[in-house]
Structure formats: structure tokens, C-alpha cells
Deep mutational scan, measured.
Amino acid sequence: KPRTPFTTSQLLALERKFRQKQYLSIAERAEFSSSLNLTETQVKIWFQNRRAKAKR
């Protein structure tokens, strides 16, 4: 499956949310993903990858 090209504004929103909170609840993820026009899976995986990056 092809890589999702996130827009700059989506990335800024994702990073801002990640700084507030590294783990989103299912409800938060649902609301946040629809506000960004992304799927919940895209947001879930982005947060997983971002947490992995933060550990490195």
C-alpha cells in the first residue's frame, strides 16, 4: 500500500497533538482523524511511528 503523503498542515497538527499527548484514546483518534481528513488507521500508525522516533 502506498505511503500517505501528509500535507504540511496535517503534519503540524499531528506534531502539536503529539506534544500535548503521546497516546490518543479511540474517541480522540476518531475525532482528530476526521478533523484532518485522514483515516483513523493513518493517525494510529503516525502516532506509533512518532513514538518509536521519540524513543531513538
Rank of each mutant, 00 (worst) to 15 (best):
K1A: 04
P2R: 06
P2T: 05
R3S: 15
R3Y: 14
T4N: 12
T4L: 09
T4F: 11
T7Y: 04
T7W: 00
T7A: 04
T7P: 02
T8H: 08
T8W: 02
S9A: 11
S9V: 10
Q10M: 01
L11V: 10
L11Q: 11
L12I: 04
A13F: 03
A13T: 09
L14T: 03
L14M: 06
L14S: 00
E15T: 02
R16F: 12
R16E: 15
K17C: 07
F18L: 01
F18K: 01
Q20C: 07
Q20P: 02
Q20L: 06
Q20M: 11
K21Y: 04
K21F: 03
K21C: 15
Y23G: 07
Y23T: 11
Y23D: 13
L24H: 03
L24D: 00
S25D: 11
S25F: 03
S25N: 06
I26F: 14
I26Y: 13
A27S: 12
A27R: 04
E28K: 00
E28Q: 05
E28C: 01
R29K: 04
R29P: 01
A30C: 08
A30V: 09
A30M: 13
E31G: 02
E31V: 04
F32L: 13
F32C: 09
S33M: 01
S33A: 09
S33K: 03
S33D: 03
S33Y: 02
S34L: 10
S34D: 07
S34Y: 09
S34F: 08
S34M: 12
S35N: 06
N37M: 04
N37L: 08
N37Y: 10
N37A: 08
N37G: 11
N37K: 07
T39K: 05
T39I: 03
T39G: 08
T39H: 09
E40S: 05
E40D: 08
E40A: 05
T41P: 09
T41S: 13
Q42A: 13
V43G: 00
K44Q: 13
I45S: 09
I45Q: 13
W46N: 00
F47W: 08
F47G: 02
F47D: 02
Q48A: 11
Q48V: 06
N49R: 05
N49V: 10
N49A: 13
R50Q: 14
R50V: 03
R51I: 15
R51N: 12
R51V: 09
A52L: 07
A52Y: 05
K53L: 14
K53W: 05
A54W: 05
A54Y: 07
A54S: 13
R56G: 15
